[in-house]
Amino acid sequence: MRVPFRLNDAEVSADAEAGTPLLYVLRNDFELNSPKFGCGLAQCGSCRVIVDGEIAASCVVLLEDVAGKSVETLEGIGILDHLHPLQQAFLTEQAAQCGFCTAGMIMAAKALLDLNPNPTDNEIKQALERNLCRCGTYPRIMKAVRRAAKEMTE
């Protein structure tokens, strides 16, 4: 089945069998490396992307569920010579250690900041609660999100 959707501001379509997780299509067909396969159960956050402005676990969202929708991955928010403020804040605050959770953390934080540019610490924690960091860099992640929020509102 062919499914048209918008990926990182480009009109695309993908062919896959019914029931194929979006994650597989993003990684295998579009060669995007930011969404990672972690648990396959929407519990770790490493595969998170933004679908029509809402954070989503691409391991459980099916390709057919994004037909006609907009999907945003880390690759779509910034590039090396023009990083998104969240990407820069994660670098500045050294919020990534192994990097496995980083893309999902940044996408969850972006979804939050898109809706609430000045979140409280509790709102940041709540937005990131479905993202697991195996290295335990949560204090630096919080600091990075706060930094990005401040820079984006100045």
Rank of each mutant, 00 (worst) to 15 (best):
M1S: 02
V3R: 05
P4K: 15
P4Y: 01
R6V: 14
L7A: 03
N8D: 13
D9M: 04
E11W: 06
V12N: 05
D15F: 11
A16C: 05
P21T: 08
P21C: 06
V25I: 15
L26N: 11
R27Q: 07
F30N: 01
F30V: 01
E31H: 15
E31I: 12
L32K: 01
L32F: 07
N33F: 06
S34R: 04
F37G: 00
G38A: 15
G38I: 05
C39D: 05
C39L: 09
A42K: 10
Q43N: 04
Q43Y: 02
C44F: 07
C44H: 11
G45W: 08
G45V: 13
G45M: 11
G45S: 06
C47E: 09
R48L: 12
R48Y: 03
R48M: 15
V51N: 10
D52F: 15
E54Y: 09
E54H: 15
A57T: 03
A57F: 15
L62N: 03
L63N: 10
E64H: 07
V66Q: 03
G68F: 05
G68Y: 09
V71S: 03
E72Y: 02
E72D: 02
E75S: 11
E75F: 10
I77F: 08
I77G: 04
L83Q: 04
P85D: 04
P85C: 05
L86D: 11
Q87E: 09
F90C: 13
F90P: 08
Q94R: 14
A95K: 04
G99N: 12
G99M: 13
G99W: 11
T102E: 11
G104D: 11
G104T: 13
G104N: 07
M105W: 12
M107I: 05
A108D: 13
A109W: 11
A109T: 05
K110G: 02
A111W: 03
L112D: 14
L113P: 11
D114Y: 01
N116I: 10
P117A: 13
P117V: 01
P117R: 13
P117E: 07
P117C: 04
T120R: 14
T120N: 10
T120H: 08
D121M: 02
E123L: 08
L128A: 13
N131M: 04
N131R: 02
C135N: 00
Y138M: 13
P139G: 12
M142F: 14
M142S: 09
V145N: 03
A148I: 05
E151K: 12
E151C: 03
M152R: 02
M152S: 01
T153W: 01
E154N: 15
